[in-house]
């Protein structure tokens, strides 16, 4: 087979470096989508189901407002989870031991228990005791603390991957500990943690659907309600999947873009 024809279907790789020409990429994407379309159109064609999009379409406003709430909650808890995760990761390296172990216990407790339980406990017990009645605030904070534990582990691993010799070099040129983090550690950590961080953010957006159990009127809860009103399950939940994809795909693409921008061999 000629080299060009071979490259339509196969990537040529050398170590970690791959060379994929544009036509190869186009053909690859189209055939993958075609294959998926084939499987699903077969599955749906075998389904004896009376589609009723009209009933669901009447409630389109609920989808829009739910999607916007999910967007707002995700964005807010995404920012908060980064701050919490960073603080927890740094606390792991704190010379003050009670703080260090608080960080460790936090990470283990959150990662070891279901989000569902955390939402219930935070809302009905903790928030109630501290007089926070707003379910949107509690929901956002709970999500932020949940994702923060995972993000803290991602950041911690990133920090530890910066070698001892780099830290020595930072010390001999006279950087303060703060400057060392700011100019030497974090720029390198950023690049290394972007892919897992993007994955975590995508999870965070999907996990926000669990806030429906404390009646936060987000995307999933609205879809459930539309389903209850119309008995059109598929028509209610398929837009849900598309709505979440519309949020997670851009994050994934942004992460790939940033990864390319920060790329350098090390």
């Amino acid at each position: 087979m000629s080299r060009r024809r071979f490259q339509i279907l196969f990537a040529r790789s050398k170590g970690n470096h791959e060379e994929i020409p544009r036509f190869g990429r186009t053909v690859g994407v189209i055939s993958a989508l075609f294959l998926l379309a084939l499987v699903f159109s077969f599955a749906f064609s075998r389904l004896h189901y009376g589609w009723n999009w009209d009933a669901v379409y009447q409630y389109r406003q609920k989808f829009v407002s739910g999607w916007l709430i999910t967007l707002a909650i995700s964005a807010a808890s995404l920012v908060a989870s980064l701050i919490i995760g960073l603080a927890a990761a740094l606390s792991h390296r704190s010379p003050f031991l009670p703080l260090r172990y608080l960080g460790k216990v936090y990470v283990e407790l959150i990662r070891g228990t279901p989000l569902l339980v955390q939402i219930l406990v935070f809302f009905y017990v903790v928030a109630d005791a501290f007089g926070i009645g707003n379910r949107y605030v509690v929901g956002t904070l709970t999500l932020a603390f949940f994702a923060g534990a995972y993000i803290s582990e991602i950041i911690r691993a990133g920090i530890e991957s910066v070698g001892e010799s780099q830290l020595d070099s930072a010390r001999v040129i006279g950087l303060t500990p703060y400057q060392t983090y700011r100019y030497v550690v974090f720029p390198q950590v950023m690049r290394r943690i972007l892919p897992p961080l993007a994955g975590q953010f995508a999870s965070l957006i999907k996990d926000s659907s669990l806030l429906s159990i404390i009646a936060v009127s987000e995307f999933t809860l609205n879809a459930q309600e539309v389903n209850a009103f119309t008995y059109s399950t598929m028509e209610s939940y398929l837009p849900l999947a598309l709505g979440y994809l519309a949020l997670t795909l851009p994050i994934s693409m942004l992460s790939k873009y940033l990864e390319r921008r920060y790329r350098y061999a090390s």
Partner: peptide, 28 residues
Amino acid sequence: IGTVFQSYNLFPHLTALENVTLPLVQAH
């Protein structure tokens, strides 16, 4: 004082020029 180790002295995310200017700007 100026110290140079056996290897990995330079920061991999900075250019040669930025490696030289980092201590000048941040420490001096």
